[in-house]
Design a protein around this nucleic acid. Sequence first.
DNA 1: ATGGCCATCATGGATGGA
Length: 261
Amino acid sequence: MRIVSWNVNSLKPRHDRFFRFLDRWQPDVVCLQETKSLVEDLPKEAIESAGWHLAAVGQKTYNGVALVSKAPIEVISEGLDNFEDPQARFILGDTGGIRIASAYIPNGKEVGSDKHEYKLKWLAAMRNHLDRLEDPQSDLAILGDWNCAPRDTDAKNIDKWRESVLCHDSVREAIQHVRDFGLIDPHESIEAEGGVFTWWDYRNLGFPKNDGLRIDHALLSESLNRRVTQVQVDRDERKAHAELDIGKPSDHAPLIVDLED
DNA sequence: ATGGCCATCATGGATGGA
């Protein structure tokens, strides 16, 4: 089983790349973030014609998450339990025999800002949601853009980011609290030394210099983590590929996790 | 060898992203 997390930075300008990705990788489930689209404006028919199902929450301009799966999807939660949130950042469903979420954790902008506070509250609400409604002994996966580089080696230039809201201790602790529910990041053992990134700034030659961060993670319950055979980052998808006429890349590359069936 | 912001809403330029 192949599951994917990809922040597309709006699906509309990524349309051709997204369908090319489905064709190239044949994923069982793709968790999309930042679709920046109302659900009714997503290319549902094209996704279904290609052989996948779609479940999504959305809004105009900002946020928006989706599950795209080879198997039918039963939606379990749209948003976090007991947390009033006008922003479309979480969808959880059952598909292909596992329970899987696509999550877009708030960026937080600046340490000490209102958005930083919202980020911490959002992560606390995710832990509450899991405590109330989910079972760490089940086959559970939460994939997404966590807007956090958990280890210093998850940034090319940690000195540049150490005090940022992506590396701040408060955020790392909030992420750890979610993990302490019983979720494991297989990428951290497979790439134990770090230096593997999923996001590169559009500015200042971020990608050519590999000046990146690892902020997209697949967190798995223990039973799913035991089945992991491979974790990959599709860096090719971050390239411009001007000759292919498929549009510009997202600033995030897809994260691909393979599980034994 | 990947290349010097991008997407949105709107039509100029602000806002958010990370």
